[in-house]
């Protein structure tokens, strides 16, 4: 039993990080209707930049963290301004192809600078001693990561519900043209969406990096976020968060169960996609995705 509780907990932690990255993904999709295939690379770039600060330049963690946020903000702004803004008005499929190209470019830049070895944060961001919670040993890294991810998700929830910019983002998501007629600067909203996505991804990258170490495979994390986002419904931000948690937990539990029952390895990688297919068969718009509102 304890084994499964352990799995559940690590699943929740992983899930909360998925949720964070899925949030970034959903924001871009919602406000600009672009599926961003470079999400995993944004995450990886953030994680590596932080690695460079902490390990290579020995910057204290607090400042390294802030610098990483600033870096990922500027990265998003540059990408948005140079690559995506000229594409406004082009068919969505071309923009999606551009993000695929962007992902390879970012990946190559990372490989060129940092190589492909697994690296770890030294000193670690969070102490890796375990604490006992209700009789179960949990690594502190997990607790901190979960706490940080959950806090950020809650903050963004409040941001979208109540702040002026958040409401404007949701309005832009509904219709760019109508938002324009309200005097909402739609281009700035697009840039803001990319900034948020990039920042949450970078934070996700740092968290996952301090749990598993960072390497070039981190980019696949972006791919794993797909099931989370689609599960939650591509256009729902709450859904993306819950989808992330569900995918994290399911992935860990099924992995553990199959491993102990049949000795099967590697279920982790496919499990989310299997669940995705099953759920989409039952609810084609995802768990929280909206059908178009229809008045009868």
């Amino acid at each position: 039993m304890e084994f499964y509780i352990q799995l559940l907990i690590s699943g929740l932690v992983l899930g909360s990080i998925y949720a964070l990255v899925a949030l970034g993904f959903a924001i871009i999709f919602k406000s600009t209707s672009v599926v961003n295939f470079a999400q995993g690379e944004l995450l990886m770039f953030g994680a590596y930049f932080c690695f460079a600060m902490v390990v290579q330049y020995k910057v204290p963690w607090f400042w390294a963290f802030l610098l990483t946020l600033v870096f990922s903000l500027s990265l998003a702004l540059i990408v948005e301004r140079l690559i995506l803004r000229p594409m406004i008005g082009e068919p969505v499929i071309s923009i999606i192809m551009v993000t695929i190209g962007l992902s390879s470019v970012l990946r190559s830049i990372i490989t060129a600078i940092w190589g492909t070895q697994i690296e770890i944060y030294e000193p670690p961001l969070f102490p890796d001693t375990t604490v006992m919670v209700a009789g179960i040993p949990i690594s502190q890294v997990y607790l901190w990561s979960f706490g940080l991810a959950a806090t950020l998700l809650a903050l963004f929830g409040v941001f979208f519900k109540y702040s002026k910019a958040g409401v404007a983002m949701r309005a832009t998501a509904f219709s760019n043209q109508v938002a324009l007629s309200m005097g909402i600067p739609v281009k700035n909203i697009f840039a803001l969406a990319w900034c948020i996505a990039s920042v949450v991804s970078a934070i996700g990258g740092i968290l996952i990096g301090s749990i598993n170490g960072i390497n070039i495979g981190l980019g696949h994390f972006g791919l794993k976020v797909f099931p989370a986002v689609i599960l939650g419904g591509l256009d729902s931000i709450v859904g993306a968060a819950l989808g992330g948690l569900i995918v994290g937990v399911l992935e860990n539990l099924s992995d553990g169960a199959l491993k102990s029952a049949f000795g099967l390895q590697g279920t982790k990688e496919v499990a989310p996609f299997v669940f995705l297919v099953i759920i989409l068969m039952i609810k084609p718009y995802g768990l929280f995705g909206k059908k178009e509102i229809e008045r009868v």
Partner: peptide, 25 residues
């Protein structure tokens, strides 16, 4: 300020949020 043809309210937002969008500037 232009009120576009065909109403074009933000359907996923509630009434108060719609009004706040109008006051964006």
């Amino acid at each position: 300020f232009q009120v576009m043809e065909g109403r074009r309210v933000f359907e996923d937002l509630n009434i108060v949020e719609n009004l706040r969008c109008g006051a964006y500037t």
